[in-house]
Design a protein around this nucleic acid. Structure first.
Lengths: 247, 247
DNA sequence: ACCTGAACACCGTTCAAGT
DNA sequence: ACCTGAACACCGTTCAAGT
């Protein structure tokens, strides 16, 4: 155990899995490795690099088999559930890592498989990356909500009416989240499917502000269109009453 | 300025907006308020409560007007873009706050409006909360990816092939994210629409492992079905080679 | 009741010094 | 080249003491 970078990463991951990201400390990590805290700095520039390294090490773990012959819907489902399995394997790390921008890399087999699948589905080449990015964002959003308990908690919130007792038992339990995950996935796939196959049903609101559906075969995904919301970014807008200086 | 709890929250939000969550420190907050660091503890139990308080204060800021007469698709779009506007107003806080489970409360007008809208759309009463939770998770996922730059970065990743120059300029720029946000929203709404109206096209993979589409009018959203993925949670699975103790 | 100073147990990181 | 001890500048929080 001559204190290699990979060994430090592995030990850090073990510590994170066991006690959470906030428990990862250069000093604690060093004692876990039977080393002097300062020795770590000969293999890592700083703690931020350590965390990034651990995240990328795990992110590169994605499945590489792709079921090249299956329908694209099934391949998407496979990739997403794989992603979810990984998130469940290292929940503490992933809950943190999802907030970092660079834990999915172009070299990761996951990204290659995802873009290849969308390409096979018929998404225009110029838009594959954007659709892939959005798919990642959506799945990550659901996984974050699942890992931190928000999905479970929100599902048990009262609806607008006080629920006069005819509601049945509140849908709780762990396997409920399996169903919810599949539901989002199916809904997204259905929506993609609609946009890809028939241009008529497309628009997500036929009869609502009817924006004549684009002909099939052309960029249906990113219709260049004017922004509706006015607020620009970055920098907090000055119009928020919470920000008003009161002292 | 007798150092009220609301005043402390507002000052904390200002500090977060200006310099990020990691810059929020009890000591720095105190000096920003011209107070002794220890005085804060007479109004707050600890730093965690401070952050939770700030997050909930901002989360309660959601729009309360609902356009009760507009079609549900339009109302969903309005709620989502409102959410996004708020995220852009306090990007530093929101990037952190989205990872917390309790920044959306049942009392928030946002939650009430969302569930009411889904109810109006025809989602079965017993499943409104779950669908609402998933909608929140999806939107939050995209917003996180937008705020931390992942959406932009992923969109510019090379697809599987090295792109032989016929690709056109990489779609970057700020208004690109407007389009992408609308794309997810429309895709989700299309998917929801499909599930709500015609039960035949439903299933997101007709011809794929054909799971006989449920009749319309009944719980199409959460079809009680066996889980497909085997991995259970929580606790890291032992089969990960990254976790293998090497020392 | 509200505030305060000193102190405690922790951090990440620098640096000069050891082998 | 790799490791180390002491030190620095910060944390969050406790507590006894002030008004």
């Amino acid at each position: 155990m001559p204190l290699t970078e990979a060994g430090i990463h592995a030990a850090a991951l073990r510590l994170i899995d066991a006690e959470g990201v906030e428990a990862l400390t250069m000093r604690r990590l060093a004692t876990a490795l039977d080393a002097n805290p300062m020795s770590l700095y000969h293999h890592l520039p700083n703690k931020e690099a350590l965390l990034r390294g651990v995240a990328r090490m795990v992110g590169a773990q994605f499945r590489t088999v792709t079921l090249e012959d299956a329908p694209w819907q099934e391949r998407i489902r496979l990739l997403a559930t794989d992603f979810r399995t990984l998130a469940h394997r290292h929940p503490n790390l992933m809950a943190y890592s999802f907030s970092q921008p660079d834990f999915i890399q172009p070299e990761d087999p996951f990204w290659a498989a995802l873009t290849r699948t969308l390409d096979a589905a018929g998404v225009p080449h110029s838009e594959v990356r954007q659709v892939a990015a959005l798919m990642c964002a959506v799945v990550i959003g659901v996984l974050i909500a699942e890992l931190n308990g928000a999905l479970h908690q929100w599902s048990n919130l009262e609806p607008t009416a006080p629920a006069a007792g005819e509601e049945g038992p509140p849908n709780t339990g762990p396997e409920e989240e399996d169903r919810m995950f599949r539901l989002v996935l199916d809904t997204i796939i259905t929506g993609l499917d609609s946009r890809l196959t028939d241009g008529d049903r497309q628009g997500a609101g036929r009869g609502v502000a009817a924006e004549a559906g684009p002909r099939s075969g052309e960029p249906v995904f990113v219709p260049r269109q004017q922004s509706v919301s006015g607020s620009r970014w970055p920098g907090p807008a000055p119009s928020c009453r919470l920000c008003a200086e009161s002292t």
